[in-house]
């Protein structure tokens, strides 16, 4: 394959909120048709990183490049216009809206009705149902159903189908499997593979190493706002990754160091790193 610039690249991204540094010199790349798994424990900065990519936050320093060109996201809309779509844990965020209506929130199809421009419900429903069926969810066949009535996996599929329909090139999946059962999670992972097959770049955020290994091509472990490890498929075992997520050292070492500290400090626990 010829060396094409990555669809999305981060170079030395810093993000701080006032005096608190949340992200520190993050550099990552993701190519078309590739799944980048972002692993990290709670508080590692995953959410902040996603929000920076989605245009919710603006990076304090560093560059975001798309197709080799530097880009700037001032608003979520800027990122969306460039084809970056974020799908959150629960997929559809409008549980009491119909499939057709929620699919087109903000970009509703309209038609002329006499002198008035009205929402085209039939068209919206048809497009939404077809888009989600193309992802293999054939059980959804009525666009008037409420999103809240779908299963977790179906909602994820709907959200991903929506992103793809609106021309997403980079799909950010924020813990898509966290709230799902085993079967549903397998389903969601199949959809990730389908998105990848269609040439999308997928950034898959999770703390479940098994799920990451099942679909990932490229892995990055985030610890306290920095990329602690960056490796490709089959370069590390599951145990190594778990240990990395637990703090860059093996679980055993960690426990030993905590115990040692407690003994030498009159029973006090080690300080956290919040004040660093």
């Amino acid at each position: 394959m010829t060396e094409r610039p990555p669809i999305l690249e981060l170079r030395d991204i810093d993000k701080s909120f006032g005096p608190i540094d949340v992200l520190h010199k993050i550099s990552l790349k993701v190519h078309e048709g590739e799944v980048l798994c972002l692993l990290g424990d709670n508080g590692a900065g995953k959410s902040t990183l996603i929000k920076t990519l989605a245009g919710v936050h603006k990076a304090t320093a560093g560059t975001i490049l798309m197709d080799g060109e530097p880009v700037e996201f001032n608003r979520p809309r800027d990122a969306a216009d460039r084809g970056i779509a974020t799908v959150h844990q629960f997929g559809g965020t409008f549980p009491l809206m119909s499939i057709g209506r929620s699919f087109f929130v903000g970009v509703e199809p309209t038609k002329q009705w006499g002198p008035f421009t009205v929402f085209d419900r039939k068209k919206a429903n048809e497009i939404a149902v077809k888009a989600v069926q193309d992802f293999g969810i054939t059980r959804i066949n009525d666009g008037d159903r409420l999103v809240g009535g779908l299963s977790g996996g179906e909602r994820q599929s709907l959200a991903i189908a929506r992103a793809v329909y609106f021309g997403a090139r980079v799909l950010i999946l924020d813990e898509p499997t966290a709230a799902l059962g085993v079967k549903q999670a397998a389903h969601a992972l199949r959809i990730v593979n389908e998105a990848k097959r269609r040439g999308l770049a997928v950034i898959f955020i999770t703390h479940q190493v098994m799920h990451a290994l099942a679909v990932g091509d490229h892995f990055a472990v985030l610890i306290r706002g920095s990329v602690a490890a960056d490796f490709r498929k089959n370069e590390k075992t599951r145990e190594e990754i778990t240990d990395l997520m637990a703090g860059g050292e093996s679980m055993a070492d960690l426990e030993a160091s905590v115990e040692g500290y407690v003994e030498s400090h009159e029973g006090r626990l080690p300080p956290t790193n919040a004040d660093e």
Binding site: V56, A80, T93, V105
Partner: peptide, 15 residues
Amino acid sequence: FAMGGDRDSARNLGI
């Protein structure tokens, strides 16, 4: 309706 469902998402979708 979208705003009542989830204001942040609605804003992010350009409303």
